[in-house]
Every structure is written in structure tokens, then in C-alpha cells.
């Protein structure tokens, strides 16, 4: 099972590196496939205009569930219809959410 990297035991100095990077390879978590692994590089509410909440509230909800810049994420499962909703591991917690809200989470593949 060597493909499963440790998700939490990450040296502190690596944590915010992703923040500084302006990488063209970033994508929205809402468009990632099952098996995707990466790091959150930003929360960008303008990408989730179909979400059911006003932007500031959506951002706070995501933060409260642990979607913070620098955290590792892995897309574990998706639903049958339209691949929605998705189950995402954020650090060591698994969160279920819909793709249209996950669009606000910008991730860099790792």
C-alpha cells in the first residue's frame, strides 16, 4: 500500500509552499476525478457561482470543515449520477460535498 502517502505527518515547512506557488496546473476540486490527490492552494468563491450559499458563508463553511490552504486532499468516492456528490479526505477527515460547492476549492495535484 505504498501509494498511500501519509496525509497528516507533513513537515511544517512544506505546509504553505503551495500558497506561494502560481502554478498553471491548479484545478478546482469540483472538477477532479476519483483518486485525485493534491494540496489546497486557495479558496476562490468566484469559481463556485452555482453554489447554494452567498460567497462569504460558503467560504466559512468550507473553512469550518477543514478546507484550509495548505491542507492535503484526496478525492475518495463519487456518486452514481454525474459523479456527484463527492467524498473528499481533508487531512484525516472525510467530508462529503457536491461538486458545485467544491468548485471553490482550488487544488494543486501532488
Amino acid at each position: 500500500m505504498s501509494i498511500f502517502l501519509p496525509l497528516v505527518a507533513i513537515p511544517a515547512e512544506c505546509y504553505y509552499e503551495a500558497l506561494a506557488m502560481t502554478d498553471t496546473s491548479t484545478l478546482a476540486l469540483g472538477e477532479a476525478r476519483v483518486g485525485f490527490r493534491g494540496r489546497i492552494s486557495a479558496l476562490d468563491m468566484s469559481r463556485a457561482d452555482g453554489a447554494g450559499l452567498p460567497a462569504p458563508e460558503l467560504e466559512r463553511r468550507l473553512l469550518e470543515l477543514g478546507f484550509v490552504e495548505g491542507a492535503m486532499v484526496e478525492l475518495l468516492h463519487q456518486g452514481l449520477f454525474g459523479g456527484d456528490p463527492i467524498a473528499v479526505r481533508v487531512a484525516a477527515t472525510t467530508i462529503a460535498l457536491r461538486r458545485r460547492e467544491a468548485m471553490a476549492v482550488v487544488v494543486t495535484p501532488q
Binding site: F4, P6, L63
Partner: peptide, 25 residues
């Protein structure tokens, strides 16, 4: 939002300082 961010980062710092996670989840 910025308050929550700061707090979660502080929580992550505390977690790294006091909790050792196993090498494989």
C-alpha cells in the same frame, strides 16, 4: 473567514507539535 483560517492554522500547528500520526493512515 480570515479568523477561521488563522484559527485552523493555529490548530494545525498545535496538532503537529503534540500529535504524531502513524506513517500510514
Amino acid at each position: 473567514a480570515s479568523g477561521l483560517r488563522t484559527a485552523q492554522r493555529e490548530a494545525d500547528r498545535v496538532l503537529r507539535a503534540a500529535v504524531k500520526m502513524p506513517s500510514a493512515p
